[in-house]
Design a protein around this nucleic acid. Structure first.
Lengths: 259, 259
DNA sequence: AGTGGACTAGTGGTCTGATATTTAGACTCT
DNA sequence: AGAGTCTAAATATCAGACCACTAGTCCACT
């Protein structure tokens, strides 16, 4: 804590570059967004807190309700607040749940110019990379739940109900074994857009169901045995096949597009 | 209670689950957002296209201008469109550049309930994980630029101008060697919030500059020699030190908060 | 002819003030 | 005491207006 004294010698100037993003926008609403976002960042407003009503806010900040409403829209779109109508309604600061962020992230990715192969490759790197952590930290409960999941999925497979959503759920659950919310969130968002771009692929290759769930099962057992190398190997193979499938579908698409 | 005969008893459902996300919101503006987002997703609107003016849109869709404006705000906040004022102004569909997405992503992360250690750990996994790809794909130009970067940074260090921003730039440039936009984007967004949470740490440990840039240099040479194991080892050490520093700062913070 | 400045039309940004709709909680009425 | 109704507070939306900004256009002056 003695650091306090030392922290401020030559501070102030020299804007650590892009921290102040070209204020440009003469928009009042933008300024309001920044102000409220700042309050949330600095924790003067915490998740669960209610903002004043639109009329109230407008009065305090000297702008009209319309302007406030626009600010509210962008704050809501950024996932910072939630708005309810009716008495006792209004805007409350949300704790941006990991899953919510994950979906927002997935939205961003799916609209991005990234190709499916690129995302798949990134996913491979990440999901294989976390395996040492998974193996190290998975609790007995984690493993029990994974086993349970595999059983459920194999049953679903026999009934023809197995789909990408289940596979995705498995991978997210594996990531959750790291007990690191950031990792879980990232894996979660990887699976959003991928689900979309792979749906056709899965239809075209239903075989993947059997092989896939078997690999899931083997993977869980490797984790249970704390066998990092084997778990990595299985996952690498498993994801590698997905990658090839994506590449194939993508190639097909491009061929179609060219015609 | 007799159902209309024509309404197809229980057809139509099948809702591939969350594809139709809980239409909920009676909000007109939300419907408009969805419609336009749909147009963009389905490529009926492409980057560069101009949307009609607010007045025009309002008339066509049978809603008032305010409603349209709110829709525009959320589309803009989601990075789908850009709005300019003045004659020939209006909303144009943007091509969401990787860097733009990266910053949006970074914003999301920095507002999330994730702790710095969690993000750091995720970053470690990812940045070490990509190294095989980096070594495999780095071109001569890539390596030349990395060497150049290291030299610049060491010079800056001697002048006391070396900072987190430069370190971040190095790591992003390394990621760019994968020639995979998704990976580059992810690394880029990792470095946004980290910069924030580490500023104090860097002040407290300026030594890191020397060791850090030396490690950068060694890393580049390992890549140039196509030595995956060594490159991984260096990066692991390098990031490991950062992780410890983050953990220390975080502990300090919590201690302060408790008092 | 060329150039600078005024003009103009189109566009987003904001305001005002009103109505419709939704909802939680208080308040009846039986 | 319970069920239904009423009310107040809040958002959602509308309509019409005005301002500020911007890119062209066009005219007057050099």
């Amino acid at each position: 804590m003695s650091e306090h004294v030392t922290t401020a010698p030559k501070v102030a100037p020299r804007a650590n570059s892009d921290l102040y993003r070209a204020v440009s926008s003469n928009r009042m609403s933008e300024a309001i967004v920044d102000q409220i976002r700042g309050l949330i960042r600095s924790e003067q407003l915490r998740p669960g807190d209610r903002l004043p009503s639109e009329r109230d806010l407008g009065e305090r900040m000297g702008v009209s309700r319309v302007t406030i409403r626009e600010a509210m829209r962008v704050l809501e779109a950024s996932g910072l607040i939630e708005i309810k109508v009716g008495a006792r309604g209004g805007a409350v600061v949300t704790t941006p749940s990991s899953t919510k962020i994950g979906t927002g992230l997935a939205d961003l990715i799916s609209l991005s110019p990234l190709t499916a192969s690129e995302v798949t490759e990134a996913r491979q790197v990440f999901e294989v990379g976390i395996i040492p952590i998974v193996v190290e930290r998975a609790t007995d409960d984690d493993i029990a739940e994974l086993r349970n999941m595999v059983a459920t999925h194999q049953a679903a497979l026999r009934n023809g109900e197995y789909g990408m959503a289940m596979s995705a759920a498995f991978h997210v659950r594996v990531a959750a074994c790291t007990h690191n919310a950031a990792i879980e969130m990232l894996v979660h968002s990887f699976h959003g857009p991928l689900l979309m771009s792979l749906r056709e692929a899965q239809v075209a290759a239903p075989l993947m169901g059997h092989r896939g769930t078997n690999e899931h099962r083997d993977f869980v057992e490797a984790v249970a045995a704390r066998d990092v190398a084997r778990a990595e190997e299985i996952m690498r193979t498993h994801l590698g096949r997905t990658a090839r499938r994506v590449a194939r579908v993508q190639a097909t698409r491009e061929r179609e597009a060219k015609s």
